[in-house]
Nucleic acid binder design. Structure first.
Lengths: 234, 234
DNA sequence: GGTAAAAATTTATATTTACAAGTTATTTAT
DNA sequence: ATAAATAACTTGTAAATATAAATTTTTACC
């Protein structure tokens, strides 16, 4: 667990410091040389960690200045790579409708599966996001049952799937593919999302690639975008 | 124009080779050492270029193997960072509804403007995307009038805005922020996109950050996602 | 011919060093 | 006191080098 590359250790540490508020939006991070001293590494190593933070949208870099922590955008943070359940005003609950369970792969939202993924079987679960008492988002997730022991036993209520995968299993998102649709709500969606029939609903299908070969996350999201848009950084 | 960093030169060259088909999807790129020899640079420089290509989703890297060119996904490539007008089956026309013109900033789709951007004034244009004779996408773009001489005179019919900015003005996309909505078509959209009133339409607002300070691209897209979803890589 | 071990190749990580270029703080001259 | 010049600091680029880890190719053996 501790044989992580040094730049990953630094990345996680700084990311944690930003998430915890130790470095607030607008704050400057220590200079690269100060970070080098602190973590006992050289500049290229520190810079790699900062590259990742910048790619994830946590910091802004500009030559001559120190790196500055970015403010997170308003909205329902789903589209961003880093998978931050970004801050919005009200209270957010995430009830689990279908608990994580083993299944046969049926269809991965139209995305092709590799042989290894199909052989491994599928872990399936559904969650709802309720914002200030109003259901805004229905989330169906499928992922292959490879190298994630005891995953099904984990509590998915509060924590982000991506945080769990990254910190517990060293699985990081490297990229992916997504398709967006604006559809009219059918009976099933009406039931969960409390909208009239025919109401415009956003549908997002995603195949999310990870650093681990043959390990993709397949996700379908339905979202009501009345008050808040589905937002994110990229 | 040619004082580009070496890794950017290599990135552009390889990207061009992929775009032109010299390296087809599934093909392996030359090894890092071979690229070093070819471009007379050292491995960190070549690796930086490959890092960028991988981040843009053009190649897949795996330790021990050579980098392999990815296949570009089907659909209307709009969401992706790299901004490729990716291949789809039919014919795609991009008629310009409102030619690039100078304007005062009114509202940047809800995104806040910096003082420098507001002072510079706004270049505004609207384009339609017509796929096999059917209008599927209405595209409103606004960008600050700073350091892009003769931009308004350029032909936006065929080429991608991002390709123009990158190759002509060395403006690269570094990230951004986006909000998605599913809305019901109003009269204005009905007119351009040929849909019934109330038909679900996708709305995408984006603030696209570039490597140049105080230069963001503001874009609003309306899309009919009946046949094709709005798709992209990330 | 097939298999397993060994070698070669290739990417990943990390250090060290150097200089360039942009920003900020300080000093100096007016 | 203000403004310009200078210095100090910070990030960007790039080389040279070394070792580790994963993959592919070759070799040796049966």
């Amino acid at each position: 667990m501790d044989n992580l590359p040094r730049y990953r250790v630094i990345y996680e540490a700084l990311r944690g410091d930003i998430a915890s508020g130790r470095y607030a939006p607008g704050d400057a991070l220590p200079s690269e040389n100060e970070l080098c001293d602190g973590y006992k590494v050289t500049r290229p190593t520190v810079r790699k960690a900062l590259d990742m933070l910048a790619a994830d949208g946590f910091i802004v870099r500009r030559q001559g200045r120190k790196s500055v922590v970015k403010g997170t955008p308003k909205g329902i943070g789903i589209l961003s790579l880093s998978g931050t359940t970004s801050a919005l005003g009200g209270t957010l609950r995430t009830p689990v409708i279908v608990k994580p369970e083993m299944r046969q792969w049926n269809d991965a939202f139209g995305f092709p599966l590799t042989e290894a993924e199909r052989a491994a079987g599928c872990i399936y679960f559904e969650r709802l996001r309720v914002l200030d008492g109003e259901p805004v988002l229905l989330d169906i997730t499928m992922l292959p049952n490879i190298g994630i022991p005891r995953f099904a036993a984990l509590n998915m209520e509060d924590s982000s799937l991506f945080d769990i995968l990254r910190t517990r299993y060293q699985i990081t998102v490297t990229g992916g593919e997504q398709q967006l649709f604006a559809i009219a709500a059918d009976r099933h969606l009406r039931e969960h999302l409390h909208v009239r029939q025919g109401h415009p609903v956003l549908q997002l299908n995603r195949r999310i690639e990870t650093g681990r070969p043959d390990f993709c996350i397949y996700s379908r999201i339905f979202c009501v975008t009345g008050k808040y848009g589905l937002s994110g950084t990229f």
